Simulated assay, not measured.
Amino acid sequence: MASADGGGDEQKTSWPEVVGWVTLNASFKIASDRPDVSTAFYSDTTPLPTDYDPKRVIIIFDSGNVVVKTPVVG
């Protein structure tokens, strides 16, 4: 089934493959897959936003700037 934009593929909404990556590399991968979204960085000790934003991907990282949870749209 083709998407409304004619691309033919569903847009990616999660990036499990970047868990364990350095945050900057993860951000580049997400931007490459979905240039229409922005990335937001949160430490694993910081409260996360409670609102849903379909144009945001939250990257949660540890003290070593390594992604610790699967980034998802929202």
Rank of each mutant, 00 (worst) to 15 (best):
M1W: 15
M1A: 13
M1E: 05
M1N: 13
M1F: 14
M1Q: 11
M1G: 13
M1R: 15
A2E: 15
A2F: 15
A2Q: 15
S3R: 09
S3T: 13
S3P: 09
G6A: 04
G7I: 13
G7P: 08
G8E: 05
G8D: 10
G8K: 05
D9E: 15
Q11I: 15
T13W: 00
S14T: 10
W15E: 01
W15Q: 03
W15N: 07
E17A: 07
E17W: 08
E17K: 05
V18R: 00
V19M: 07
G20K: 05
G20H: 00
G20C: 05
W21K: 09
W21Y: 07
W21H: 11
V22S: 03
V22K: 08
V22C: 07
V22D: 03
T23I: 06
L24I: 03
L24F: 09
N25V: 08
N25Q: 07
A26Y: 00
S27A: 14
S27C: 02
F28E: 04
F28Y: 09
K29N: 03
K29H: 01
I30H: 00
I30R: 02
A31W: 10
A31H: 12
A31N: 05
D33C: 01
D33S: 10
R34C: 01
P35F: 09
P35I: 08
D36F: 13
V37T: 04
S38A: 12
S38G: 10
S38C: 10
T39Q: 08
A40D: 10
A40T: 11
F41K: 06
Y42G: 03
Y42V: 01
S43N: 15
D44R: 04
T45Y: 10
T45Q: 15
T46C: 15
T46Y: 10
T46Q: 09
P47D: 08
P47H: 00
L48F: 02
L48K: 08
P49D: 11
P49V: 02
P49T: 05
P49M: 09
T50H: 09
T50I: 12
D51K: 10
D51G: 04
Y52S: 08
Y52M: 10
D53Y: 09
D53C: 03
P54H: 04
P54I: 04
R56G: 07
R56C: 02
V57K: 00
V57P: 01
V57F: 03
I58N: 11
I59S: 02
I59P: 02
D62N: 13
D62C: 03
S63T: 13
S63I: 12
G64Y: 13
G64P: 07
G64R: 13
N65D: 12
V66K: 06
V66R: 03
V67H: 01
V67I: 05
V68G: 05
V68I: 08
V68F: 00
K69A: 14
K69H: 11
T70F: 02
T70A: 01
T70D: 05
V72R: 05
V72A: 10
V73Q: 00
V73L: 06
V73T: 04
V73R: 07
G74V: 11
G74Q: 05
G74Y: 04
G74C: 04
G74M: 07
